[in-house]
């Protein structure tokens, strides 16, 4: 357990808790950014430099801005704050917390004690932009192209969904 890991993990958990506990959506978004910052630090600590940067730029940058934009758009008209008048579904809250708690305990506990037959060191150039690019564009070029297709479908889908006459 390195100090970097401990700090970043605390950051990520705090961010996650912030997301699910805050009342205002804007606070949730900010907590999520905090979580992403922690994750980016973890990535970099694991030699995934490129991925850490991407996490910051795309997630904490682009996607979160999108969320904020939507919140702003909707808040301009109405109050998007949810009606938190208790829990309408019976037993939903205790059951959910129990189930998720068990999940975290079991999965986390078993992962914590598990022994994996990994290699101690990493090859040279592991996680660098050059190496990552070679893997992405040479070895896995077909999935890469397919994600381009998925993105295009998403764009078209969004236009079809929202881009009605009045919009």
């Amino acid at each position: 357990m390195t100090p970097v890991f401990l700090v970043a993990a605390a950051l990520a958990v705090a961010g996650a808790l912030g997301v699910i506990l805050s009342r205002q959506p804007v606070h949730s978004v900010l907590a999520l950014v905090l979580n992403f910052l922690g994750l980016a630090a973890l990535y970099i600590s694991m030699d995934a430099e490129f991925l850490g940067v991407v996490q910051l730029i795309i997630y904490a940058g682009a996607i979160m801005v999108l969320f904020l934009f939507v919140i702003g758009l909707l808040t301009a008209r109405k109050d998007p704050v949810e009606r938190e008048a208790g829990e309408p579904l019976p037993l939903q809250r205790p059951l959910s917390i129990a189930a998720a708690g068990t999940l975290a305990l079991l999965l986390g506990g078993s992962l914590l004690v598990a022994r994996f037959g990994g290699r101690p060191g990493v090859p040279t150039g592991f996680g660098t932009v050059k190496e990552f690019g070679r893997h992405l564009l040479v070895t896995h070029v077909l999935p890469f192209e397919l994600t381009a297709f998925v993105l295009m479908v998403a764009v078209v889908g969004v236009i079809v969904l929202v881009g009605r006459k009045q919009a």
Binding site: M1, F5, A9, A12, V13, A16, L17, V19, I20, P25, N35, L42, M46, P80, V81, E82, R83, E84, E87, Q92, R93, S96, I97, A99, A100, G101, L103, A104, L107, G108, G109, L111, L112, V113, A114, F116, G118
Partner: peptide
């Protein structure tokens, strides 16, 4: 690495409980 994996499990469970509890 075991710590990292356990952290992933905890974050996953936190996200899940959020989906189950929050109505927004």
């Amino acid at each position: 690495e075991n710590g990292y994996l356990a952290l992933a499990a905890v974050l996953f469970a936190l996200g899940g409980v959020g989906v189950l509890l929050r109505r927004s």
